[in-house]
Design a protein around this nucleic acid. Structure first.
Lengths: 304, 304
DNA sequence: ATCCGTCCATGCCGTCACGGCATGACCGCG
DNA sequence: CGCGGTCATGCCGTGACGGCATGGACGGAT
């Protein structure tokens, strides 16, 4: 039954052409080896080695085994190695969902880091809505989600990935951008038209932004913007409204718009969310790479 | 250590997606199967199956094993089958040596039968001198020899293959062929010039032919002929001598020569000689095919 | 909500394959 | 002819493996 071990034993003897030396190589006693080879011969019904007391020669069948045997052992080893590669997360696949607004910087950086640190892991990344991400991770159809203001759900495990400093996007001619203004006080948002995603989309995020204003005593007039980010710049560009985004939104801003950090600083937490149990090694590996990446980029320093 | 069995077990469970059914299929109890799969997982350090009480699903590593595992099992099986093919003599190689005079009929028939009955056995046949054949078989450098009048040597095993009726080749105008003669009495050879191979070449053969003459009271004058058969016909064709050959020598006789059987009949034994021990299955197989062939052709009937 | 059936895991035990040690048998060499 | 080297065999202890009985968890039906 334990055929591969016996095959290994036989190959050792056949190569050494000597039971005693082969036994030493295999770290077993010579009688044990002698019996195992005999047993293999009995099972196969063939004489594999023609032995005289002072010479051991493979028979024809033995020579065939010598030719094809090593390939079989190698195939077996390769299979075990492959499986083990899943175990330490060198191999695998992970599905990642992230919101559009996270796609500007965090998600690409994470994917880049993964391709460098864990090239064996296939990360299938898709832009999804916040609710689909949360539900997907909870249901197990999605491995990892990248979201702002993750909901405190029991079965979800959160990995803080980034503290994203928030700022205001205004037209270059907007009063808030007048002079040499390098920041915006949330109190100054009072009474302004503020573009935000619908609260249903991500209640935590909505509430946090409103809270920032409320803490400063500001009561902006909220306008709901669509999920498509860029298209919402129009009212901002015209000066009719302002919006609050993380600093990752400042890159690639259309001409005529400026991003001014809130002062005092306010940050939004970006998390990786996973299910708490049954995480595959590949998922664990992604989390590890993500934390490393966050450290390298200073994503966790509040001033970001 | 007994990895292949465990792989088989795992594959059964993974395919059935159910331990109980897989256990039945494998003819072992469910707890044993459960533990073996767990043990496999422990050895590999990976969870292969994600089990809930009512569902069994392969993990990513498990799926890899499901894809590549069967090929490994098949490779192993194929190897065992191949080796077993040597065991029953379906596969192998045999070296065969035969004398020139046996090449006219017996050896080709045997090779033909082998190619039909045991196509997996490669028979490398060579024309060799009698002594080389006998020495080669005894020394183990040759597997099988096909010879007339095999010497009774201890370590050689003889397989009677053919009783070859002997006859006389004479020129058409020779006195022995006068009238409507259809046979030759050995007594009539008295005083004639008789072409034979040198006694050293095959003493048994020489002695037997001389014995046939002596039994009949004839004392021919022996001329030594070379090993090359055809070239020796010249003195026969000229009527200066006669020679004794088996009936296989009658086919392809040059015009002007006739073969007349000895009467009373005399036969020479043609044997396959092999070493008595350490015969490979392929050799055994050849012996079996040879005996069958002899039976089919009636080679063992004295008048044959 | 509770009960029941299904299914996987665990505990316990008997058997046998495997390996070690001591020893025997055989052969070549000096 | 004895000696050393080599493979085979006898005997025994250990551990892997399989069976049986049982526990525990989940889903479905009533």
């Amino acid at each position: 039954m334990s055929e591969l071990r016996r095959l290994r034993y036989f190959l050792a003897v056949a190569e050494e052409r000597n039971f005693t030396r082969a036994a030493e190589r295999l770290h077993i006693a010579q009688p044990a080896l002698s019996r195992q080879v005999r047993e293999l011969e009995r099972e196969l019904g063939v004489e594999l080695l023609s032995r005289t007391t002072h010479k051991v020669e493979p028979t024809e069948a033995g020579r065939m085994l010598m030719e094809r045997g090593p390939a079989l052992l190698e195939a077996a080893d390769s299979l075990w190695r492959g499986v083990r590669a899943f175990a330490d997360g060198r191999l695998g696949s992970v599905s990642l969902g992230y919101g559009m607004s996270a796609g500007y910087d965090t998600a690409p950086q994470l994917l880049l880091a993964m391709s460098e640190e864990a090239p064996g892991i296939e990360v299938s990344a898709r832009v999804m809505s916040f609710t689909d991400i949360v539900n997907g991770v909870a249901a197990g159809t999605l491995d990892v989600g990248l979201v702002r203001c993750a909901p405190p759900q029991q079965e979800l495990a959160l990995t803080l990935l980034r503290l994203e400093r928030q700022g205001v996007i205004v037209g270059r001619d907007h009063p808030l951008a007048q002079g040499s203004a390098t920041s915006v006080n949330p109190a100054d948002l009072d009474g302004l038209k503020l573009l935000l995603h619908a609260r249903d989309h991500n209640p935590g995020h909505y509430d946090q932004l409103m809270d920032i204003c409320a803490q400063a005593g500001a009561k902006p007039e909220v306008l709901v913007r669509g999920l498509d980010f860029d298209a919402s710049y129009t009212p901002v560009a015209s000066g009719a409204a302002v919006t609050i985004v993380g600093e990752t939104g400042r890159v690639g801003l259309p001409a005529g718009l400026v991003w001014l950090p809130l002062e005092p600083a306010a940050a939004v937490e970006v998390h990786l969310i996973t299910r708490g149990l049954n995480r595959s090694p590949a998922i664990e590996r992604l989390l590890k790479v993500a934390v490393d990446t966050a450290g390298q980029h200073g994503w966790l320093r509040p001033q970001g």
